[in-house]
Structures are given as C-alpha cells and as structure tokens.
Design a binder for these strands. Sequence first.
DNA 1: ACCTGAACACCGTTCAAGT
DNA 2: ACCTGAACACCGTTCAAGT
Lengths: 185, 185
Amino acid sequence: MPTPERTTLEEIVAAARDLLDDGGPAHVTMQAVAQRVGVRAPSLYKRVRDREALLTLVSTRTALDLGASLAEAGDDLEALARAYRRFAHEQPEGFRLILGGPGDPEVIARVSAPVLRAAGAVVGEDRALDAARLLTAWVTGFATMELLGAFRLGGNVDDAFEWGLGRIVSSLEPQETAPIRHSGR
Amino acid sequence: MPTPERTTLEEIVAAARDLLDDGGPAHVTMQAVAQRVGVRAPSLYKRVRDREALLTLVSTRTALDLGASLAEAGDDLEALARAYRRFAHEQPEGFRLILGGPGDPEVIARVSAPVLRAAGAVVGEDRALDAARLLTAWVTGFATMELLGAFRLGGNVDDAFEWGLGRIVSSLEPQETAPIRHSGR
DNA sequence: ACCTGAACACCGTTCAAGT
DNA sequence: ACCTGAACACCGTTCAAGT
C-alpha cells in the first residue's frame, strides 16, 4: 500500500546547500539533511544514491546558479567578471565545492557560454576561446586567493581586482597590437 | 618507565601526504596514517591535536614545497608560472588542499616571495604587488580549471597556457604603455 | 613517557519489516 | 511505494592501564 512522499529531491538538495553554506562539506551529513527535510536518514537513499552523489547534485545546482548570475550580468566582459567574483563572495562554500570536484562537461559549457559570447564580441570568434579562458582563469584564481586569505597584505583588494581586470580586458582589446610572445617550453 | 618513540611527527605527516596523493582527503584517516607509520591510531594524538591539525600540517608542508619549487625555478616570471603549473599537475591533491583551507599568512608570504621579486624586477617595486597578484591569480585559476576538467573542449591546453602567459607577461612589461582603464564599481 | 585496547559518540549505508 | 528502526562497518577521539 502506497505511502505519501514526505519529501522531494529538490528539498533534499536545498537542505544540503543550506548546510554547506554554514559549516562547509563536513556539516553536510545525511542525518542533518534528513532532519531538515523531516525524514530519517535511510529515506534519503530513495532519491539519492549516496552522500557523494548528493554533493555532486549540490555542486551542479550551484554551478548552474552561477551560470544564471552570469547570464543576467549582461554581455560586458567586466560586468561578467564582477558578477563571477560576487558569486564567489556570496557563496564561498559552494564556489569551493564547484572548483573541487571534477566538473560535468555539459554544466561547464553552460556556465562558460556568457563569457564565451562576450569574449567573441571583443576579439572575434576564433580567439574567443583563448580570451574567455584568460579572463575566466584570472577571475577564478583571484576569487580563490581572496577566499584563501592570500590577499591580506597590502592595498585595497577591490582596487587590485579592478586594476587586474582593466589589464586583462585591455590586453584583449583589438587596438592593442602587442607582439605575441612565443616562449619555449 | 619511558617507552621508546616508535614514530615521529615528520613520519606521520609524510604518511598523510602519501595517502592524500592517492585517494584525496577522504583517504587520510587516522587509522590509515597510524598503520603506515606502524602504530595504533590513538598514539597519533601524542604528536597531533586532531585530524584537522594533521591536514593543516600537510597543507603547510605542501605549500612550502611549492615555495621551494618556485625558488628553484629562477627569477623569470614565465619560468615561475610554468613551475607553479607543474607543481599543480604533479601534486593535484596537495594543490587543492592548499587552495581549500585558509592559508597561514607567514607561509603565503614565503611562497609569494619569488614571484614578488621577479615581478618587481619587471615593473618596479611599487607595482610589484599588483603584478605578482595578476600573474599568480591567473596561474592559480588556470591550474584549478585544468584540474577541474574545464579545459577539455577545444585546442591544446599547453598552447593555451603559453598563449595566456605571453599575454599576461607582455601586458606587464614596461614598453607597453597601454592606457590604464578605470572602470566604476 | 609513550603505547595500547577498550570504549563512546557519530556517521554512511543496508535491509527487513511496517503501512 | 515510501518510510522506519535496527543493525553493521567504520571513523575520530578519550582514557585508564600497561611497560
């Protein structure tokens, strides 16, 4: 005889995200998640294979949220970079989780799309990938090091971000015909 | 009556690093570490406060190794960037661990020193910090995204690295008098 | 002074039994 | 068809007892 469903996958993932936000991955226990959605831990295994799969779901949803934030930010490279950094500040644990595990190629493609489009508009289609990678790598590293606390010594970090952003973007703009250096490997 | 010491802190940290390297943080259990150094788990608590403290030690040692690799790499910005990336490839788990937790300011200062010195030689003392941050953020992000698998689609990744490196470094060199863009916040 | 077995609390996961 | 208590394996940590 059927029993009414007392929770949903959506609720479970949301609960896991909340727990992650305040306490990091260690705080995301199956029991804590279960309690939050009003169920016992074993019941979670009806919707989720195991804890690792749940964390992967959290990572994917968080990455898609990042993608949505970027899509909202417009098609200006600087606006995209600022939105990316803002996301890292607002959801540091989620940001770290995304960067930690291996990423789902499809999700990566979706998140990258806005940056790729904006980059294409500036440098042309065939350099778009290189340009997008340059900017994305820089913002990713900047936010990571900020979260790490590596920028504590000296100067205003917001200014450092804007300075670096200006450097990166202007190095991409076409009127700058800097010689392309080929250095040996 | 004294008992001979059957292990050392150094041995314990080395064992934890080995376990981290093949299996990630989840593989670093107190029991596994203990077994590797030939002792029972409770004995570890004579040298280490708890598991978290042990992982912090591993992070610190790994970061100092990275610093040593950089110091060996010379005082060329491009050589430093390549050495940094090589380290991330050789010890991906250690690299992720360093980037994960909060960093010890003293360790960060030590690891940054070679990049700061090389940057100062190129752009002068007063821009050295900005330049070092620009390069470090980019390499950190590049390596992180590589480990994530975010660079799987399209093109040779080594070439992308060299291309980006050339862009970054040449954007720093003094003969390039690109206008500094100030964008609003 | 260090090492150990035993014990405790907690966690992930399985499963038979309930409805 | 979903939910649960009970159970199991495993983990981090403490501590009294050994040498």
